[in-house]
Structures are given as structure tokens and as C-alpha cells.
Design a protein around this nucleic acid. Structure first.
Length: 315
DNA sequence: CTCGATCCCTGGACGC
DNA sequence: TGCGTCCAGGGATCGA
């Protein structure tokens, strides 16, 4: 499932293959995962001026006509190179947003190659290739966004886990009464973390997934932050995790799945203490953890039990 | 605010 | 061989 490292890997691939390419025409198959398929005709004639990642989203920034990225005007006299490093760039009139969901793949493919069964969008490019989006389960999402819509889209997003500093991370986690697993998965807390890297970072920092954010110590919180960043960075280097069917923009699988220490390892020995890894559902998601290294929190609110007992008695 | 449940969707695993 | 069932999960949504 594409999370931050997988999306980053795909983005880097696209930067090598589609940057500066002009979109000549648009083909759409099934469109129920597209916000506004009728707007996609606007893609024709536009040039892919920039490709970036925002959490688990990919943003293909578009420039009108034949202008390449080097001729895009940037407000405030910033150079394009500088603008790239800012978190949210707004100088492009429109962007194509792509979310890979569970099974989405996007890649530049030779136009001669027949469409795959679950290819739903194909953009003909000016180099004889096609930028194709393929997604069997259609849990992904695409949208043609004006600068205004993009601003709305990005408004409530959480911090980038790779850039967030100690103070902000602490504030975002320790101010909440949700379980840490839920917080890590919440894209309005941190953008880009999914089930795999949440479990991996919790295992690494020896924190049980059902611990409550506000009850983590500052030390634990910072250990978690460092673990998360190290794991994400390492996973990016390894081109992501290929479980199920993740492939990068070149159709290559990643390697990081070989380094998973918790995710998907139910019943297998913990790499630290040999205790069998367990799987529980937390925040509605499978959560893999070591019951010895990651001690469970003491009973969460006994509110339910108390209310019931007292209620019966007093009424 | 926080929770769990439900839905979306299809391929793959599993049981018979 | 084939069919039915269950499960996976990111995110939206809804009721408690």
C-alpha cells in the first residue's frame, strides 16, 4: 500500500520521465474515483511543469501551452528552484492530484503497449508515451484542481513527518487523547504515514499502538519521532515496500518489505526478544506489535463498565 | 473530541 | 475445477 516512501519513490520516477512533457490528449475509462472527470479535458495542451509529493498525494503541476518548468513565473520574484522547496507552492494555475489508494500505479508507458485491464486514465504525451493510471480496486483518487481547490485540499493537512520538528511533533501527539496508532494514521496529524510505517516506527520505539497520545512521555514522543523519520528515510532509499502490488514509476518493486520488523509478522519472533509478534485491531486497522517490547497500556477508560453498574444500581 | 461501524472495490487465500 | 466466503485497507461518513 503506497505510503509516504512509496509515493516519494513514484514521484522521483515521474520527475525523470514526464517532467516538461506536454499532454496531447486524455482518455478516461472508469471515472468513479475521479472528483471531476469532466474537467480532465482541460489537461490537453498543458505541460507537466513540476511533480511533487504532498503526504500520500502526488501533485502534477501544470503550465499552459508549451512552457516548460523553466519559464513558469513565480510570484514574489522567487526562482522556481526556491519555490520547489517550499511546502505549498501556489504559482501554478492548475494541478493534477493523484492518490494511489491501495492498489494505484502511475507510470509513463510506451503508447504502443496495450492498456492493462484496470487502467482507467491515460494521458498521451508529446514523446510518444502515455502517462497511465492503473488501479484494480479504485481506492485511489484523481482530481483536476485549480489553485483555489488545491489550497482547500491542502488546508487541513497534518505536518510532514520528515520535516516536523520536535516541538510541533510533541504538540500534535501529546495534546490528543486518541491512541497513538490512530494519531499516526490520521492525515490531519501527520501526512503520509500509513499502516506499515506506523507499526514499524512503534515497534522501533517500543510503544504499544493502543497507548494514548497524551499519556506518552516527552522522551517516548521524541524517540517515536526519530524512529519514524529514520524508517521513512531508509524506506525511501530502498524505494518503498512492495507488499500486495506496489510498483514504482518504472514498474519496479521496492525492497523495504524485507526490513519490516513488525508489520505482517504475526506469530513470528520479535527481532529483539524472540517473543511472537501479535496482531490486534487498533483504530480499525491491523496492528502488529511485540507484546513484550511494547507493553500494553493499563486498561483504557473503564467508563463503560462503571456507567452500566452504577446506572443499574441507582435506578 | 473520540469511538466503532459501514461503505467503497477487487484479487487472493482458503475451505469444500 | 469451481464456487462461496472472508479479508485487506485509506478515507469518507455517520451515529453514539
Amino acid at each position: 500500500m503506497p505510503e509516504l516512501p512509496e509515493v516519494e519513490t513514484v514521484v522521483r520516477g515521474l520527475q525523470k520521465t514526464v517532467l516538461g512533457r506536454k499532454i496531447l490528449s486524455v482518455w478516461i475509462g472508469k471515472s468513479d474515483f475521479i472528483d471531476n472527470p469532466e474537467e480532465f479535458t482541460r489537461l490537453s495542451g498543458q505541460t507537466i511543469a513540476h511533480v511533487e509529493r504532498f503526504g500520500k498525494f502526488m501533485l502534477l503541476r501544470l503550465a499552459k501551452g508549451d512552457e516548460g518548468e523553466t519559464t513558469v513565473s513565480v510570484p514574489g520574484g522567487q526562482s522556481v528552484a526556491e519555490a520547489k522547496s517550499t511546502v505549498v507552492v501556489q504559482e501554478y494555475a492548475a494541478s493534477l492530484l493523484v492518490h494511489l489508494g491501495m492498489t494505484g500505479q502511475i507510470a509513463s508507458i510506451d503508447a504502443e503497449i496495450p492498456l492493462e485491464k484496470h487502467t482507467h486514465v491515460s494521458l498521451a504525451l508529446d514523446d510518444g508515451r502515455e502517462l497511465r493510471y492503473t488501479d484494480a480496486r479504485r481506492f485511489g483518487r484523481m482530481a483536476y484542481l485549480t489553485a483555489e481547490l488545491l489550497a482547500k485540499e491542502v488546508a487541513g493537512a497534518g505536518a510532514d513527518p520528515l520535516e516536523v520538528n520536535a516541538a510541533e511533533f510533541s504538540q500534535r501527539i501529546r495534546s490528543r487523547n486518541s491512541r497513538i496508532k490512530a494519531l499516526l494514521l490520521d492525515q490531519s496529524v501527520l501526512r503520509g504515514v500509513g499502516n506499515i510505517y506506523a507499526d514499524e516506527s512503534l515497534w522501533r520505539s517500543k510503544i504499544h499502538p493502543a497507548r494514548v497520545g497524551s499519556k506518552l512521555t516527552e522522551k517516548e514522543t521524541q524517540t517515536l519521532r526519530r524512529a519514524l523519520q529514520e524508517i521513512l528515510n531508509r524506506a525511501i532509499v530502498m524505494r518503498g515496500s512492495s507488499i500486495s502490488d506496489f510498483l514504482d514509476a518504472n514498474g519496479e518493486p521496492g525492497e523495504y518489505q524485507r526490513h519490516h520488523r513488525a508489520y505482517g509478522r504475526e506469530g513470528k519472533p520479535c527481532y529483539r526478544c524472540r517473543t511472537p509478534i501479535r496482531r490486534v485491531i487498533v483504530a480499525g486497522r491491523s496492528s502488529y506489535f511485540c507484546p513484550k517490547c511494547q507493553p500494553a497500556p493499563r486498561q483504557r477508560k473503564s467508563k463503560r463498565r462503571k456507567v452500566r453498574k452504577l446506572g443499574k444500581r441507582s435506578r
